[in-house]
């Protein structure tokens, strides 16, 4: 009876949660622990050490791949955020035109399209227009992939905003564009930031599309790691992965914080 009264978790819930989280995170935890392994053999524990981190920072090829990945992620996330936000504004603010539903549906297609297909079609496009494959082609490809995620995030926020805020701004002397910038943009800014971070992590993570669209000498980090692993797992890979897990965790946490702030502001807007 006393157990019933407790608002906490039942034994079943604890077990279920432990199993679920264990299944998700055990591999990652093992990877992080083994990145501090002193032994050369991946599977044998040889004591704690930072050896593989040092190794990574001396590995020019790996560093180049990491740098490439970060640049692609930053550039494509920025482009995707601009385009995605514009698309979201057009879809939620534009006058209702014929085929509007079709358009918004089409915008979301990359969300469900198998990556192999997106990658292949982009490759065919780049070959057809005969551009040199490398940084720019991967960036464009990743922009295509991540733009719709930004649109989804920003549009849901925009749709929940009170339109009369912009009207009030116009009533007080703002032109329509100015009214959007001063009344609505501050309220959707956190979700735009969240969209950027989402796009950044998606780009950083992508192997398939990058493999299709990159050229010789400009491998992204996932491509580089994947090719290393085929020759046998080096403990250095563990160290790189741990660093990136840290970076991505940071971004995802700040993205979810940003969207929390955004919706909290929205609630205030609704109350106000």
């Amino acid at each position: 009876m006393a157990g019933r009264a407790q608002p906490g978790l039942s034994r079943f819930n604890v077990t279920a949660l432990a199993l679920g989280l264990g299944f998700l995170y055990l591999p990652i935890v093992i990877l992080v622990i083994y990145s501090f392994n002193a032994s050369r053999l991946v599977t044998v524990w040889g004591g704690w050490s930072l050896r593989w981190y040092v190794e990574f920072f001396n590995d020019q090829a790996m560093l180049a791949a990491s740098w490439m990945s970060l640049r692609v992620a930053a550039a494509s996330a920025t482009a995707a955020t601009v385009l995605g936000t514009l698309a979201a504004i057009a879809l939620s603010r534009g006058a209702r035109f014929k085929g509007r539903t079709l358009f918004s549906g089409m915008l979301y297609a990359p969300l469900v399209m198998p990556e192999v297909i997106t990658g292949l079609s982009l490759l065919l496009l780049f070959v057809a227009i005969n551009v040199e494959r490398g940084f720019w082609t991967v960036t464009v490809a990743h922009t295509t992939l991540t733009m719709c995620f930004v649109t989804v995030v920003v549009q849901s926020r925009l749709n929940s905003l009170d339109r009369s805020l912009e009207e009030a701004a116009m009533d007080l002397g703002c032109s329509p564009v100015r009214a959007f910038l001063s009344a609505s943009l501050p309220l959707i800014a956190p979700s735009i930031a969240a969209g950027w971070m989402l796009a950044f992590t998606l780009s950083l993570d992508d192997l398939v599309i990058a493999s299709f669209t990159t050229g010789p000498g400009s491998a992204t980090l996932p491509i580089r790691i994947y090719s290393e692993i085929r020759l046998g797992v080096k403990p250095e890979v563990n160290a790189i992965c741990t660093l990136f897990i840290g970076l991505i965790t940071l971004l995802i946490v700040s993205a979810s914080l940003a969207s929390k702030i955004s919706s909290a502001r929205g609630d205030n807007a609704a109350r106000a």
């Binding site: 009170d162 009369s164 009207e167 009030a168 701004a169 009533d171 501050p186 309220l187 205030n268 106000a272």
Partner: peptide, 14 residues
């Protein structure tokens, strides 16, 4: 030179 007071007040929350 006309101003409106909105039913929802439409105060800028930020």
């Amino acid at each position: 030179p006309v101003n409106m007071m909105f039913q929802s007040y439409a105060l800028f929350p930020h």
